[in-house]
Design a protein around this nucleic acid. Structure first.
Lengths: 140, 140
DNA sequence: CTGGTTGCAAAATTTTTGCACTGGT
DNA sequence: ACCAGTGCAAAAATTTTGCAACCAG
């Protein structure tokens, strides 16, 4: 995804420089907190206000351009909307990695929902642990 | 679990009645935000301070007596530590229900972690949708 | 043009902290 | 009796809001 203008317009949002910058930095970094986004965007667009970041994140989450990823013990992060996936969350460095492989688990989730008469809408899987890079650092 | 005193002492925490009250209301209600806990505890123990609730939740999460359950678009909730399970989160009424049935998904999670050389520690599955009760209300 | 968007500053909310006092062990 | 734990009030951090100026369509 590089055509943020189209993405925004498709979702009834004006393509302002501020919004495009927010999408760019999130796309580049994968998963970012509000503060992370602010610090990155300000490098490119120094006059942007934190309030604008907040307003736009809320708006873009409503419009489902962005998805909030809540993380145990941390501020939530935001990512671009994409197919459902698993998050590998490193508790050492904080990095979040996406893994697209929910076919098997999805079957379980749907079976469970059916059994419980629960109208399933969204799945969210976070696996917490230590990523390969951080294991190596600790070993040395 | 009703012996909160033992639970606390086993985790090097003094068994104050503020802490016992916090554990009681969480046990009774299942999943509660800081504010929920405060509002319930204050009924039993009107002089308790919100700061005490915060301090104790942070402490009990560190000691793994409590677990933080982050939820998309909401304040995190807290539950008593127990075997890993799936959360059914109703986006209408906010209720969270536990389902103990992660045998199949656990295999997938472990296989994925092994493949990625990720040292898996904790699994967290939230399914968002509409619970049976809320479906009935909407239908009528 | 014009209605949505921005930046700023102020307000509201949420969480943390310092400290004298209290209460479990 | 000791020291962790408490309550309070103040501080810090985070998020929201109102509004005049601005700009994308």
């Amino acid at each position: 995804m590089t055509d943020y203008v189209t993405l925004l317009k498709e979702n009834d949002l004006k393509a302002t420089f501020q919004r495009i910058s927010i999408l760019e930095v999130i796309d580049r970094n994968g998963h970012m907190s509000v503060e992370d986004i602010y610090e990155e965007v300000i490098k490119v667009h120094p006059s942007i206000s934190l309030a604008t970041i907040y307003k736009n994140i809320i708006l873009m989450v409503e419009k489902t351009v962005l998805v909030e990823v809540p993380i145990t013990g941390k501020k939530p992060k935001y990512e671009l909307s994409k197919a459902d996936h698993i998050h590998l969350v490193c508790t050492e460095c904080g990095e979040v990695e996406d893994k697209m492989c929910m076919e098997t688990t999805d079957k379980v989730f749907h079976a469970l929902s059916e059994k419980e008469h629960f109208r399933l809408n969204k799945r969210q899987v976070n696996l917490y642990g230590i990523c390969e890079a951080c294991q190596e650092v600790k070993a040395s």
